[in-house]
Amino acid sequence: MSEDYTAQELMVTAAAREIRDGELVFVGMRLPILAYGVARSSHAPSARALFELGLMRDAPAPAFLATMGDPPNVAGALWATRMSNVMALLAQGIVDLGFIGGAEVDRFGNLNTSYIGGAIRPATKLPGSGGGADIAILSRRWVALMSHERRRLVDRVSYVTSPGHGDGPGWRARMGLSGGGPTAIVTTMAVLRFPDEGGEAYLASVHPGHTVDEVLAETGWDLAVAPDVGVTPEPSQQELAEIRRLDPQGFWTGRR
């Protein structure tokens, strides 16, 4: 990998490219806050951001955010309100895109952020859904951000906190889920995508400095590889400048 940027900075720019101009984006926390800023400063100048605690914005906060509730995210907001009003937009199906961080994801994009090793006496108790399950079920499409490790990208998650494509194509429609489900998983090594009809993730691009074999070795199922698998575009200088403006200490991007 180039010395010029971190793996997290590349994840931010890859996530930013998932945001289209004019979209209403359920931003959430951590790297997606930076991804919204990058998208807003480049290809998606009219994208709006929603934050589940009760905020809408049309530009990133001008200062560093450790959480969506930090005061700079509230000053200059388009709307400061209650959570259920933001969830109303999600439930109506008018939120275009959401981001969710996952501890464990499987081949169908189902996320586990609750329990590793069973719910009764878990080996690891993870923090839980937060708004993740709501985004996964109700947003038009969503993107997961993950650390790419074999123990995290598993064949089937043992507990589905936030459902992806369930057990394959057609599952979401059968279960009555209104949103379209995951369209991509952006990891520290690669971008995985899903077919338009849902189903199983495939390898779409590998980040610079990594190889297809390395990605396959760190994935816990027999990952399909796109015939045209490419290299994830590197962050541009303009994108890096925006990331570092919003996170000058590298709190979220591994530079701290």
Binding site: A91, A119, A133, A136, V160, T161, P163, W171, M175
Partner: peptide, 8 residues
């Protein structure tokens, strides 16, 4: 409709 399909 939220939580449909979730193990929660």
């Amino acid at each position: 409709r939220t939580l449909l399909g979730s193990d929660i």
